[in-house]
Nucleic acid binder design. Structure first.
Lengths: 129, 129
DNA sequence: TCATAATCTACAGTCAACGTAAGGTGATGA
DNA sequence: TCATCACCTTACGTTGACTGTAGATTATGA
C-alpha cells in the first residue's frame, strides 16, 4: 500500500504519468526510492503532495510558484522563524483565495441579474403570445 | 468620447494594443469602423465587450469558448428561442461559477485550519522560550 | 515641409504545461 | 522461449495566449 509505482500514483491522483514525470523535472516531487531496475517508487506523502499541488493550481498558482512554496507545506519546520515564514505564505494564499472568491461572487451577481432580466423578457413574450 | 482609437481602448481596458489586435483575429471583437483605409475606431460597446471577455476569462473560460458565447451577451435577441438559448448559457456560467466558488471555499477552509495550527505551534514555542 | 506620434501588417518568438512517439530494459506467466 | 507488461529515457510536437519587432503608412503640429 505504502509503496506504489507510477501507474498507481497516476491512477490515484488522476494525473497522467507524463505529468508526474514532468512535475519531477520541475522539482515539485521526487520518488521516495529508485531501486534496481530504475522504477520510481512513491509513498503516501507524495500522493498528498500531488493533491496539494493540484489544489494550489486550482487557486491559480503556476508550477514555478508552487515549486517555491510546496515544501513549506510538508517540512516539519522546527525553528520558529521557519514557522513564521510558512505562516506568512499561508496567509498570502488565504488573501489571494479570498480576493478570488469575491471576484467570482461579483461575476455571479452580474450573471444572476442578467438571468433575471432575461427571464422577465421571456415571461412577457410568452404572456403576450 | 464615443469614438476612440486603439491606444485609448488599450489604456482604458488595461490590455495591450497587440492583445486587442489578437482578440480581433480570434473574432472576439471587431472595430466599429475602419475609415480612410487604416486606423481602427472603437465605441463604448467594444469597451464593455472587452471587460466581459476579461470577466469570462476570470471564471476560467478559454478564448475559444468565449468566442462561442460572447455575442449572446451583446445581441438583442428578438426571438424567444434565442432568448432561451442565451438563458441556458448564462445558467451554465452561473453553475460553473458557483462550483468554482465552492472549491475555493474548500481551499480557504483548509488554509485557515493550517494557519490556526501553525499559530498554535508558534504561540507554544514562544510561551516556552 | 518636416519631425514626431499613432497606427498598420506580417511574421517570428516565447512560455507553460503537457502530449506523443520511438526505442530499450528487466520481470513474469503460459 | 517468448510475448506481454510496467516502466524507463530522450526528444520532438502541440496548444493557448500572448509578445516582439521590422518596415510601411497615416495623422498632426510647429
Amino acid at each position: 500500500m505504502s509503496k506504489m509505482q507510477i501507474g498507481e500514483l497516476a491512477a490515484r491522483t488522476g494525473l497522467s504519468q507524463r505529468t508526474i514525470h514532468f512535475y519531477e523535472e520541475k522539482r515539485l516531487i521526487s520518488p521516495s526510492e529508485r531501486e534496481g531496475r530504475g522504477y520510481r517508487y512513491y509513498d503516501e506523502q507524495t500522493l498528498r503532495r500531488l493533491e496539494k499541488i493540484s489544489a494550489l493550481k486550482e487557486i491559480g498558482l503556476s508550477l514555478d510558484e508552487i515549486a517555491g512554496v510546496i515544501d513549506l507545506y510538508f517540512q516539519d519546520e522546527t525553528g520558529i522563524m521557519g514557522k513564521r515564514r510558512v505562516l506568512e505564505i499561508l496567509q498570502g494564499h488565504l488573501k489571494g483565495t479570498e480576493a478570488r472568491i469575491v471576484s467570482l461572487q461579483g461575476f455571479r451577481k452580474d450573471t444572476k441579474a442578467s438571468i433575471k432580466k432575461l427571464e422577465g423578457l421571456i415571461a412577457k413574450a410568452e404572456g403576450r403570445g
